[in-house]
């Protein structure tokens, strides 16, 4: 296949393989990918873990009152997510702060690591984001029923609406509730996939000499946009988790 691509490139045609970068390969050779096989997924997730440890554990190891650069960033991330949880969910949401912070850091570092050239973006895979979103969905639903009992169902019964509209609204609310994990996961994976695929497509245009400068400038510009998107998607995923958690803790509008 690579030979074919090279031959076609020589032939003057444009060849795009924008999705090749998302392929999952076993790290130590072999074609079979079992559930335990160390793959590039494993490697980049491990790197994300190392980044988290480097920032939050090694960076704060000095415990200085006047923080250095790494410690400042760690405290900034902590304060950012802590304030988000407190503002959106309320005081009783603070208990779930470590859980939300875990999600935030994992997504943030996966997104940023995916922006390194030749890297692999774990969060661009539906399987990964679907697990993250389903974890949030199940946690929130179970928590809602445990905390509120059957009155959690009042989330779907909009008491401020006219009585005649309420059944229709209830149907809409239930549908939107069950679409949440889908949109939650596909938003993240789609954003990541789209950005990387677009960069790859523009890189493919760079094969043609006439438009190569424009293509390279476009790659640089989109790269900048992707840095922003990487952060915003991590932020959005986290804040939506907080919003869903708030619904579970306080279902009465």
């Amino acid at each position: 296949m690579a030979d074919d691509a090279a031959a076609q490139g020589d032939g003057g045609g444009l060849v795009f393989h924008p999705l090749d970068q998302f392929e999952i390969k076993a790290l130590f050779g072999g074609d079979a990918i079992h559930w335990y096989t160390p793959t590039n997924v494993t490697m980049w997730m491990a790197l994300a873990v190392l980044c988290v440890i480097g920032l939050l554990v090694l960076g704060t190891s000095k415990r200085s009152i006047v923080p250095g650069r790494t410690q400042s960033v760690a405290e900034l991330a902590y304060g950012f997510v802590y304030k988000m949880v407190e503002d959106v969910t309320g005081k009783d949401g603070i208990r779930y702060f470590p859980y939300i912070f875990t999600l935030f850091l994992f997504i943030l570092f996966s997104n940023f690591l995916g922006l390194l050239p030749l890297s692999f973006t774990t969060t661009s895979h539906i399987a990964v984001t679907a697990v993250l979103a389903m974890a949030v969905f199940l946690t929130v639903t179970i928590l809602g029923f445990v905390k509120n009992g059957a009155s959690f169902l009042s989330l779907f019964w909009v008491s401020s609406a006219p009585l005649a509209l309420r059944p229709i609204l209830a149907v809409i609310e239930i549908i939107s509730y069950f679409v949440r994990p889908v949109s939650h996961s596909i938003r993240l994976a789609g954003n990541m996939m789209a950005g990387h695929a677009v960069i790859k497509v523009f890189a493919g245009f760079a094969q043609v000499l006439a438009i190569a400068p424009i293509a390279i400038i476009a790659v640089a510009a989109i790269y900048g946009l992707e840095v922003l998107v990487s952060f915003i998607q991590a932020y959005v995923f986290t804040i939506l988790t907080c919003v869903y958690l708030k619904d579970a803790l306080h279902p009465h509008h």
């Binding site: 988000m84 503002d87 596909i186 938003r187 789609g190 695929a197 915003i232 804040i239 919003v243």
Partner: peptide
């Protein structure tokens, strides 16, 4: 600003859906 980002995220998610359909 949080509401802003939530709104943008919802609007963008639907665009991402269509992009996904194209892919």
């Amino acid at each position: 600003t949080a509401t802003l980002f939530i709104g943008i995220a919802f609007a963008e998610a639907l665009g991402i859906f269509s992009f996904l359909v194209a892919l």
